[in-house]
Design a protein around this nucleic acid. Structure first.
Lengths: 205, 205
DNA sequence: TCACAACTTTGAACGACGTTCAAGATGGTT
DNA sequence: AACCATCTTGAACGTCGTTCAAAGTTGTGA
């Protein structure tokens, strides 16, 4: 065992994911077809199905990578500024980081949500772990902002804040596909997050 | 002129939209096929294309109706509570109304955004007028909340607030397709909108 | 070294999709 | 009634994701 076949599989797996990532980054989620993918990878269409259950599984694997990159970007931004700065500044930074990632990877990012929307809840639930990690970064500054709140409350507020920022990014992205308004989206994020922080601080302390 | 053909066209147009609306409400955006639609409407597949340029145009027409219903629901909720209540209460009410509409029309609502996502910016721009009307309802209470702000600033903040609430609804909807969490989504909306209002009021007098 | 069983890879074929368009039915006008 | 314009039809086209019988490889024991 442990022979050529496995090696070829692993290499092909990697190749397929790389091609898929590049194609989607350039032309979007819907522009990826099994035939073109196989042609560029130099394998038969059927070969894809030896490695991935179906095209959705392939895209899901690619989306997991994108999610990991995003999480890394957020973690780094947070690590750089964890000590310095108020919770408010930190939360604004996180929002900005999220937006910056989306501006740089618009089609890869939207592939995540297009697929989730298409495949419904039982699929989206599999991604919950990733989302929880992402939201985890929000919880920390939030703890300082709302010292009285319990874990559950914090998680709810963190999810709400994440969803709010996500909504701004998402609609901003939809309105003008890329060009016109990262600037406005940024203003919106800053306004919402700051107002939220000020208001939340009033409520609890 | 003005004869049978036109009448039949209008009737068929109506029939097609009604069937599409029911089918999507029951089984989702992706479950609508030209063949099934034609079969249920009792016409040939080609007949659909005499009335609509393509299936996207049909769905777009249906989405416009859904948007109009949503706008009406929001307008009514606002009309009932325009006089009484603080801006904060009014904005929370608007958020709740939006959520309630989505809970009652989940698949029709998500058809709007699935299509916009699929067809990209030049399509989404056509829907801008509808969005502006919807956001208009937010501007009014916001004017009271931020008496110093100019029109442009108000529009930006209104869009931000709309996007934030939309994000909460959208992700809440994606996480658990329908069942588990309208309650949590409502809590999140109330929290975000209230905190936002308190914080925003601090910023501007 | 070779034969053989187990496994992998292949690509033509399948069914379903949106869409088209030549041929046939139907409309209003003379 | 005869006619042309217009609408309607559904088989056919190209494309999609996916499958699976056949062909090719691989690793092993005699």
């Amino acid at each position: 065992m442990a022979g050529k076949t496995e090696l070829r599989r692993d290499r092909l797996r990697e190749t397929l994911l790389e091609i898929a990532e590049r194609r989607i980054a350039e032309n979007g989620y819907r522009a990826l077809t099994a035939r073109e993918l196989a042609a560029e990878a130099g394998c038969a269409v059927g070969a894809i199905y030896n490695i991935f259950k179906d095209m959705d599984a392939l895209v899901a694997a690619m989306n997991t990578r994108t999610g990991a990159r995003l999480e890394r970007a957020v973690a780094e931004a947070f690590a750089k500024n964890a000590e310095a700065g108020t919770p408010k500044r930190q939360l604004v930074l996180l929002g900005r980081t999220y937006l910056a990632f989306v501006v740089e990877n618009p089609l890869l990012w939207s592939a995540i949500f297009e697929q989730s929307a298409r495949l419904g809840k039982e699929f989206a639930e599999k991604r919950e772990a990733e989302n929880t990690r992402l939201v985890g970064h929000i919880v920390r500054p939030l703890k300082v902002l709302l010292p009285g709140a319990g874990e559950e409350r914090l998680a709810l507020v963190a999810r709400a804040l994440f969803a709010a920022v996500h909504g701004i990014v998402s609609l901003g992205f939809q309105r003008r596909f890329l060009a016109e308004s990262p600037k406005e989206a940024e203003e919106q994020i800053v306004f919402i997050v700051e107002a939220f922080c000020d208001g939340a601080a009033l409520q609890k302390g």
